Computed example of a mutant assay.
Amino acid sequence: MRLTVLIRPKTGILDPQGEAVQRSLATLGFSVTRARVGRLVDLEVDEADPGSARDEVQRMCEKLLANPLIESFEILENLAEGS
Rank of each mutant, 00 (worst) to 15 (best):
Q58A: 04
L25Y: 00
A20V: 02
L79E: 11
L25R: 02
V45Q: 03
P9D: 12
L3G: 03
Q58R: 05
A35F: 06
M1V: 02
D55L: 05
S72A: 14
I75L: 05
A53V: 08
S31V: 06
R54G: 01
R23P: 01
V37E: 15
R39P: 06
V5M: 05
I13F: 13
E62S: 08
D42L: 09
V37S: 03
K63N: 09
L40F: 13
L76I: 10
L69V: 14
I70D: 10
G51A: 07
K63I: 08
A80I: 11
L43N: 02
P68K: 01
R54N: 00
A66P: 01
T4F: 00
P50V: 04
E56N: 01
R36C: 03
V5C: 10
E44H: 14
G18Q: 10
V21A: 03
L40N: 11
A66V: 05
A35M: 06
A80F: 12
D15R: 07
I7C: 03
I13T: 13
L69I: 13
R8F: 00
A48W: 00
P9V: 12
F73V: 09
R59D: 05
S83T: 15
L28W: 03
D42E: 14
L43K: 04
K63F: 07
N78R: 07
F73G: 11
S83M: 15
A20K: 03
P50N: 03
A35V: 08
L6G: 11
R2K: 07
T27E: 07
A26C: 09
D55F: 02
P68V: 00
S31Q: 12
Q17W: 05
R34V: 02
C61P: 10
V21H: 03
M1I: 02
L28Y: 05
Q17P: 09
L6E: 15
M60F: 03
D46Y: 00
R36H: 06
D55G: 00
M60R: 01
I13A: 07
D15P: 15
R34N: 07
V37K: 12
T11S: 15
F73I: 11
T4L: 02
I75K: 08
Q17M: 10
G38W: 06
F30I: 02
L65W: 09
I13Q: 14
V37P: 14
K10C: 09
R54D: 05
L79N: 08
S24G: 10
L64Q: 13
E47G: 07
E19S: 07
G12R: 12
L14R: 15
R39Q: 08
S72F: 08
F73H: 14
E77C: 07
L6N: 11
L14D: 13
L43E: 01
V32A: 04
R39F: 06
Q17C: 07
A53D: 08
T11M: 15
G29C: 01
F30D: 03
R8Y: 03
L76P: 14
A80T: 15
A80K: 12
E62Q: 12
G82L: 10
L69A: 09
G38P: 11
I75V: 10
R54P: 02
A53F: 06
V41H: 10
S72D: 15
G51S: 02
V21I: 09
M1K: 01
A20P: 00
R36F: 04
A53E: 06
R8N: 05
S83H: 15
L40I: 14
D42G: 12
R39E: 05
K10E: 08
L3T: 04
